[in-house]
Design a protein around this nucleic acid. Structure first.
Lengths: 352, 352
DNA sequence: GAAAGAAAAGAAAACGCTTACATAAATAAC
DNA sequence: GTTATTTATGTAAGCGTTTTCTTTTCTTTC
């Protein structure tokens, strides 16, 4: 009895230890091991303790695939995104991860540009639900399929609501509207808008908001005041430079850039042409990226509550999973952060 | 025949469609479906096409748990980290994700501060291998267990090599050494070091490198020249401010900060006391974060090739998985980026 | 001390898939 | 037109779990 105490022999010495190994070593059946491990209090304490000790000694870790094959939930959420670049990504992920943990879920982040990979993961049943931030990769048909398959999902970059899927997005329309209104309140009338990427929801909405504010204040809209910056520093730099060059007589009072990166390109271009910001022209962006505060001049911008978005999205997703609510659309309002790139319009000679 | 074409009836109308549903609907056995789906070219083309069409129509997606239970590999790598904050995280992830995709692997990022969660995932057989960036959460014992279980892993923040695990880290010692040497080459002799977090490998190594460079140049080491900045802007600001206050007679020629964030805090503190950077004092950091370029003055720093680290780590991991090599340690050298926060020491009155 | 009842442990089916093997069908050989 | 080959499909076992249900063991109770 004691002589074979140490001669533990697993069938496959190099393989992973399974519940069978534990059962054999502990001298009980696998169902008993399972019960011991899962705290089903139906075992005599001594048995349970013994099994647990054996499991510990063998470094037994349950195979999740076997487990999930049976289980109805994995307590795992997914976050699918095509790209993690961009400075606020980590704020979003950090917030989501913390909140998931608080709610007792794990978070699996998958970065892929391949729709197939994403869908397989979503529908491959390894996740209870999924947060999605991809750019128009998933089309109508895919959404329909997901809906049919009862996938629980929350989108972060598109508006969509049905039985099992919802959205948590920024109110970019309001952001564009508010920003424009703020610039108008400073006395600016000629306001140029530097557009981002026309296929992106945010970009389009911001511009619509801008146009609405102009309309509301009866400021005539000038088509030539819409520049294409593509959300990029260089693109904006070039656009603004050539614009300023060709419109020396009609320099705008202010530029509203599609995002902060674009605002930086704008300011650099203006400086290169000998204009001062904000003395000659005001410039405003969106996002409030890290850099905004440190740039010279520090950027006036509309801040998105990124962490809040992450938390609300996770909350919503968990409620969808628990069938506590239907999918719905939540819009988050931005907050105007006034720094030094914008100023009251004081000098009538501006825009000479 | 045609009248029941649309009356597809699955056992469980709300449940997910399985391989059985496809088999029934296609009128073949499940093994035939499996073969068709996995491109085992043993089927008559017509059969295969038919099965594929049925699968498509039913929106069949294989359950990964069932699949992986049998399979020996998942073609999935994991990246485990305790936190994603810090501006270079996304560079790392982006590089890893792209490279994984290129090599035919998926990447699963798990953010968790719970060791148990991490280990369960690693050892739960859902991943072929794992990249690890956590701070001393996983201890000796865990590593031993992982080694015994033949886990394939590459660590990004600790040095370790054995049969199945390796490391890809920055040579922080060399970075500290090189940075100090560079400052000395500018003529600075009194160089203060602003330490980070003393439990972190990088922090300790950088300081060791700094000390080694001083030694090599026979510059006496002054204990009071070591400040505690904790890798944070505010911590550094306070430390530098009080230091400057209490050492008006012995202001260093240069400050070497544990990272860029710390360097920024340092410069702010110096400015607040009326000193100019780099005219009065040179300041240098580590990392080359985004902001470094835009700060005023732009920061001289040691850049880490973060994307390179990610790529090398993935490469190494995949080789470990394929048993093409044993675990080993790779050290990446930093690169000094000279900007305007450092300058030649010209004025003997500095450090008055 | 035997029968009944409660408690503990085990046997076996099921989850969805792959795969080695067996069988059936089609083709080739004589 | 049989029989031998090849080719195509089906059968069934097994992957590691959980879980229902049955069997065994232990307590009571009289």
């Amino acid at each position: 009895m004691s002589k074979n105490k140490n001669v533990l022999k697993r069938k496959n010495p190099m393989g992973k230890v399974t519940i069978k190994d534990v059962a054999r070593e502990a001298g009980v059946s696998i169902s008993t091991v399972s019960n011991a491990l899962n705290n089903v209090d139906v075992l005599v304490p001594a048995t349970k303790a013994h099994i647990l000790a054996v499991a510990e000694r063998l470094n037994y870790i349950p195979n999740l695939n076997g487990k999930l094959l049976k289980a109805s939930e994995s307590k795992m959420l997914g976050f699918f995104t095509t790209s993690v670049s961009g400075p606020y990504f980590y704020v979003l992920v950090e917030a989501m991860a913390r909140h998931c943990e608080k709610l007792g879920y794990g978070l699996n982040i998958v970065v892929a540009k391949d729709k197939r990979a994403i869908l397989n993961n979503i529908l491959g049943q390894r996740l209870d639900g999924v947060l999605i931030f991809e750019e128009l990769l998933i089309d109508e048909k895919d959404v329909a399929m997901m809906e049919k398959a009862q996938v629980k999902a929350v989108f972060l970059d598109r508006v969509l609501e049905n039985e099992t899927m919802g959205s948590v997005i920024f109110d970019s329309y309001a952001a564009g509207y508010d920003a424009t209104k703020y610039l108008i309140s400073l006395g600016h009338k000629k306001i140029a808008y530097i557009s981002g990427v026309d296929t992106m929801y945010d970009s389009v909405q911001r511009k619509e908001g801008y146009l609405a504010a102009l309309r509301e204040h009866q400021i005539p809209f000038d088509e030539s005041y819409i520049l294409q910056g593509f959300f990029e520093e260089e693109g904006t730099y070039n656009a603004v430079k050539s614009f300023v060059h060709s419109h020396p007589e009609t320099l705008p009072h202010a530029f509203l850039a599609g995002n902060d990166v674009s605002a930086i390109g704008c300011i650099k271009a203006l400086k290169s042409q000998g204009y001062q910001v904000p003395e000659d022209v005001s410039v405003m962006g969106f996002d409030d990226i890290n850099l905004a505060e440190y740039f010279s001049p520090p950027l006036t911008t509309v801040k998105n509550q990124i962490a809040r978005q992450g938390i609300l999205a996770v909350d919503h997703l968990v409620k969808l999973i628990k069938n506590e609510e239907k999918g719905r659309i939540q819009k988050l309002q931005g907050e105007i952060i006034v720094r030094r790139s914008s100023a009251l319009k004081v000098d009538q000679t501006i825009g000479r």
